[in-house]
Amino acid sequence: MIWILDITMLFFLVICAIAAISIKDLLSAIIILSAYSLIMAIVWVEMHSVDVGFTEAAVGAGITTVLFIATLARTEGRSED
């Protein structure tokens, strides 16, 4: 484990999590959640769990984002909180 990369990525992870739940525009929140998943994939590859890393990059950052955006296209894109 490269600890300086680990700490930097975990710091970005917390920032992304706070931003994803506090932004009112839902499309922005979903894209930030996608970035969160991608940073999480980097953290896992860096912690030597490579199989989980690329599954998260494909499934967490890819399919989940597509599902969220498909939902957003059928509903409304604005949140009150």
Partner: peptide
Amino acid sequence: NLIKKVIGANI
């Protein structure tokens, strides 16, 4: 917002 709740569940 319900989508915000799902985002929270993901996190």
